[in-house]
Design a protein around this nucleic acid. Structure first.
Length: 236
DNA sequence: AATGTTCTCAACCGCAATCTT
DNA sequence: TAAGATTGCGGTTGAGAACAT
């Protein structure tokens, strides 16, 4: 039970981060609502989970987004829209929140998609703000927990070679080609997925990196590539 | 230098799905 | 099976740094 005003809100301090990190080191992830009971931390379980998942976890990449990442996000967004968690699952080391923020503050403008919150201004964000205010900066930039997408997986046709992938400019045309190609499969929807599957939470189709996929173990379950290896990842 | 504006990002909120008892 | 607890998601907000005047 998470009562109303017994929990602190707002930015996390270095000390709070340390407490949460220590807790997870001992007890592991999950059971977020136990954190405040065990540690006395005045944060809700929800807040603890968010802090860990989006910031403290060593698998979270803190560096600026690369051109390749931008490209990947744009393609995925074209495919599936604002499914930030799904998109993040395809961008190693990035969280749904990061992807969402990056899209809203950079990519949507880059693509000329209207933003409801003002005009473009290029700025590289640093941790200076947090440092200045004694809020936490991750102790490590390490991504040691990260594993690359299994591009070399023989079952997968994911192309790590972006040269082989579609260009952004040609995306629409190529999407038409895909849809024309699979259109003859009248019983299936986009990318060979049934409407039911697309609208369901069976996300196993979308992931390869099991570390980033809380829903399904790709090693044992079929992936999208197993069904339509050429129709999806060639365009990522 | 002071003040106002813009922008980015972390964090919150509400809701739905899933899990546990 | 039902009800409560927990988790996860996408939309949104607000603090404060960066920039403009």
């Amino acid at each position: 039970m998470e009562g109303g005003n017994e929990y602190k809100k707002g930015l996390w301090t270095v000390e709070e981060d340390r407490i949460l990190t220590d807790y997870i080191r001992v007890h592991g992830k999950g059971k977020w609502n136990r954190v405040n009971k065990v540690t006395g931390l005045k944060r809700s379980g929800k807040s603890c989970r968010l802090r860990w998942m989006n910031y403290l976890s060593p698998s979270v990449k803190r560096s600026d987004f690369s051109e390749e990442e931008d490209d990947l996000i744009i393609r995925l967004h074209n495919l599936i829209g604002n499914r930030w968690s799904l998109i993040a699952g395809r961008v190693p080391g990035r969280t749904d929140n990061q992807v969402k923020n990056h899209w809203n503050s950079h990519l949507s403008k880059k693509l000329g998609v209207g933003s409801k919150r003002g005009k473009t201004k290029t700025k590289t964000y640093s941790d200076s703000k947090r440092a200045k205010n004694n809020f936490c900066i991750p102790s490590s930039e390490s991504n040691s927990e990260l594993q690359p997408l299994p591009n070399s997986d023989s079952n997968s046709n994911i192309s790590g070679d972006h040269e082989a992938a579609a260009t952004i400019d040609g995306f629409d045309e190529e999407m038409m080609n895909i849809q024309n190609h699979i259109g003859s499969k009248s019983e299936v929807g986009f990318c060979g997925m049934s409407e039911a599957t697309m609208m369901s939470n069976d996300y196993s189709f979308w992931f390869h990196n099991d570390d980033l996929n809380p829903y399904s173990p790709y090693l044992s379950d079929p992936t999208l590539d197993d069904y339509y290896p050429f129709q999806f990842d060639n365009y990522l």
